[in-house]
């Protein structure tokens, strides 16, 4: 767990140090990407805890989720339904909490086993 937290901290530090920013118009894409990354991370932790983790499946899952989310935002802007990105946000949000609850349960199981 600690390694993952350190990895997140590393990413934040990198981002803050380079002070990379995106145009305001792309903020929606960024938010959706953040959600996708959170969802993938929690899903990965859960898979790892369930002993079903596959590097390739995980990487592809992350990529396809992110791309699909970005595509939904893009399409939403193009067809005049800017709120379409909420679909991605809601889906990722539900999955995040779902994964979080599973991770929590699995972690509790692990710690009780030890």
């Amino acid at each position: 767990m600690l390694v993952l937290l350190l990895a997140i901290a590393l990413g934040v530090t990198l981002g803050l140090l380079t002070s990379v920013s995106v145009p305001v118009e792309l903020l929606t894409y960024l938010g959706v990407a953040v959600l996708a990354a959170m969802d993938s991370s929690l899903g990965g932790i859960r898979a790892a805890l369930e002993q079903t983790f596959h590097d390739r499946a995980f990487a592809f899952g992350f990529l396809t989720n992110t791309l699909m989310a970005a595509f939904i935002v893009f399409i939403g802007e193009r067809i005049g339904v800017r709120e379409l990105y909420l679909a991605a946000v809601v889906a990722f949000g539900m999955r995040i909490f779902d994964n979080l609850s599973q991770v929590r349960r699995l972690l509790f199981q692990r710690w009780r086993w030890e």
Binding site: L4, A7, I8, A9, L10, G11, V12, T13, L14, G15, L16, S19, V20, S21, V22, L27, L30, G31, A33, V34, A37, M38, S40, S41, G44, F58, F62
Partner: peptide
């Protein structure tokens, strides 16, 4: 992915 997540959050924050 965790690093990417942190980076994205930092960019969003910036």
């Amino acid at each position: 992915v965790a690093v990417v997540l942190g980076f994205l959050v930092a960019v969003a924050f910036n």
